[in-house]
Simulated scan of single mutants.
Amino acid sequence: MSYSVGQVSAFAGVTVRTLHHYDKAELLSPSDRSRAGYRLYSEADLIRLQQILFYRELGFPLDEIAAILTDPQANALERLQVRRRQLSEEVARLERLAEVAERAIEVQQTGVPLTPRERFEVFGEVAFDLSYATEAELKWADSPGQREAMTRAAGHTKEDWRQLMGEGAAWRAELLAAFDEGEPSDGERAMDLAEEHRLHISRWFTSCPPGMHRRIADDFAADPRAFALVVPAPQQRPGLAAYACKAVHANAARHSEGRTDPEEDR
């Protein structure tokens, strides 16, 4: 028995255009033609279509599906195992992204509503890059410190934000002055500023031991979006992020001097 393109499209749930594309790509060519020249699909063609749709549902590209179906030596099992691992990783990533969205919803529901004018008054030029915030949340999703920071941030009042952002602005001015005046990044002044930043994080967001502070500073040096959270782009200078990072590392080393328990630095 043979089936027309329209019939196959209807019961297979694919468009006629898709069937024509498969034919053009030589992935699924109908076995016969009607007297009028219309495509006719056989039972064997439908079995092949089922296989194609199965692999497409799993996300295989058409050229890989063609290799699996046409090459008897193609290792379909190995390809499926690889794809299963990829899908498992994607599921895990999406689940973590869903958690990020859920936390963002909680922050929006429990956070302090600000008008655009109030937001500028509180945050000034400090920019919160959503793409960086999402990546950071995924990166540190398993960290108790990250969860505590999100919870505490959601609980801050508008006045809390005014105060902590004011502290940040004052600290930023001191950092810029030290950098512009040529203070060494491992000098007393720079290390004291690094320590002040560490205590600021502990005071407002989450306990920040020196080891954690080093990782935060490494992000400052590696990602401009992260450093923009503490020094807005218009105020930055070439080398400032690296300078701040080195100061944090020097301060962490100062803390660890004389300690025998490495856990104290983590």
Results as ranks from 00 to 15, higher is better:
E121V: 00
V122D: 02
F128H: 11
A153K: 00
E57N: 07
F120A: 14
E121A: 14
G187T: 05
G168I: 04
E135W: 13
E102S: 13
A67I: 00
V91L: 13
R162L: 14
T134C: 13
F123G: 07
W171C: 05
E57Q: 06
V82N: 13
A101R: 12
R96I: 04
R85S: 11
E102R: 08
E167S: 04
R152V: 12
Y132K: 07
E99Y: 02
R79H: 11
V82G: 14
A190K: 05
I65W: 06
H156V: 03
R84I: 05
E102P: 01
E125S: 08
G168Q: 04
E78F: 09
E137A: 15
V82S: 15
R84A: 05
A98M: 05
R117E: 14
T134F: 06
F123H: 11
T115C: 03
L62A: 04
D180A: 11
A67L: 05
V122M: 04
K158H: 04
S185C: 05
E64G: 00
R84F: 06
L87I: 13
A76G: 04
G187Q: 03
D63T: 10
A74Y: 10
E106V: 12
G168S: 07
Q73H: 11
R56G: 11
V100E: 06
L69W: 12
A173P: 01
V126Y: 15
V91G: 01
E148C: 07
D160R: 01
P72H: 15
D142L: 06
M165I: 06
R152F: 01
Q86I: 03
A153R: 07
E174L: 10
D63Y: 08
E95T: 15
F60E: 07
V126I: 14
D71K: 10
D186T: 12
A98L: 15
L94D: 08
R83V: 03
F123I: 02
R84E: 14
T115L: 02
E125P: 01
E137F: 14
E183K: 12
L138K: 05
D142F: 04
I68A: 14
E121S: 08
H156Q: 09
E90H: 10
T151I: 04
R172I: 00
A104V: 08
R96F: 05
L69N: 11
P144V: 04
R147Y: 02
T110I: 08
A149D: 04
